[in-house]
Design a protein around this nucleic acid. Structure first.
Lengths: 204, 204
DNA sequence: GTTTTGAGTGAACGTGTGTACACCAATGAC
DNA sequence: GTCATTGGTGTACACACGTTCACTCAAAAC
């Protein structure tokens, strides 16, 4: 294995170890030594890859966000068509992604309002970008033509909030199936309420 | 000062010190010694008041929740009347409370999805209670008569989510006034969207 | 083939950690 | 007035922490 490959592998091991540890603690409570230990290297070697824990945290946000963006984008394609069945479809796509990348989603949810400023900032910046992206999609929906761009972004923001709340609830809940189903139905109904509200907006 | 009073005072000092420290870090990253130092007592004296940091955390949730409940209840009285101006009113009441009890709200926002299980659980239990309370209020609104109780709770849940998101954004934002105003308007419009959606629910 | 580079090592530092224990001193009960 | 109760103290322990420094030794550059 080449030198660069070996380095990349260790770097990834550090990121993986961090994601593992953050499953039941906050990122800010992790120690550099713990992470290094988890990756199977000596503490001082950590600095060959990241300048600090904060630096690693920001990198981890970009990593995890790539997964979230992919999930939300896929769901988005259907959501903009409006109506109840497509809202359900979008949600189930998202939640399927959550199940296969549980740890990364938990990291994002936990640290969105967490105690490490740079990490928090990175997450919210990315989420805002995504809201704007969704707003642009909404603008292309015929039924929403003539809307203010600002208002569309506000609606998009609310969709994202509902989605993220559903993810948080899913990850927090016990493993029981009934709970999960109820949770999905709730989020779905909330999305529909907003969609119905959109239809009424300045049309009354 | 009586013995019991003196003890209560120290206990409060521990809670205050914790709230202070949590302003820019996560609760899980606090050490017992730090908190004791902040309260002006020696580490071992901590145990005269709380069995552990986790224990203190749960107490702090109850403390802070009392403030949040009062704020949300006050705003609720107007919200259930429906319509745009009352949504604005409810929001401004809440945000005024946030400004006077900033640290406690920040604690709740930060730890709602934070790394300390018991604390997280305590916050979400209380929030769920509040949602249910709001749902009962909604049931008394004539326009919403005939709704399923479950659906009302789902709507109430969404109201609470929007409110909490607004609080989080307010506390995260820089101090600039323009930002704050935009944020309030956004939350207000989101509330209205849901209210409009409620009007359409199974009425189409 | 020789030299340079750099990821990983291991010992050492000063400092902070949670908790155990014996102790003090003032309040409150009798 | 005496004595038990109890919040707070100070010392001590074994351990974990972030960061420093001089080091190895294999891959990459020449």
């Amino acid at each position: 294995m080449s030198r660069a490959e070996k380095k990349e592998q260790t770097r990834q091991a550090l990121l993986d170890a961090t994601i593992d540890l953050v499953d039941d603690r906050s990122f800010g409570s992790l120690s550099l030594r713990e992470v290094a230990r988890g990756a199977g290297i000596v503490p001082t070697a950590f600095y060959r890859h990241f300048a600090s824990m904060e630096d690693l945290g920001v990198t981890l946000v970009e990593d995890s966000m790539r997964v979230l963006r992919r999930a939300l984008r896929e769901g988005r394609r259907d959501l903009v068509k409006g109506g109840m069945p497509t809202a359900r479809e979008s949600l189930s796509i998202l939640l399927r992604h959550v199940r296969t990348d549980e740890a990364k989603f938990r990291f994002l949810i936990r640290e969105q309002h967490g105690g490490v400023t740079e990490v928090r900032r990175a997450i919210n910046t990315e989420l805002r970008l995504f809201s704007r992206e969704l707003a642009i999609d909404l603008a292309r929906v015929p039924a929403l033509a003539g809307w203010e761009a600002d208002d569309l972004e506000i609606a998009a923001d609310l969709f994202v909030t509902i989605m993220m709340t559903a993810v948080a609830d899913l990850l927090d809940g016990d493993g029981r199936v009934g709970t999960e189903q109820a949770l999905v139905q709730r989020a779905e109904k909330q999305l529909v309420m907003v969609i119905l509200g959109l239809g009424q907006w300045r049309t009354e």
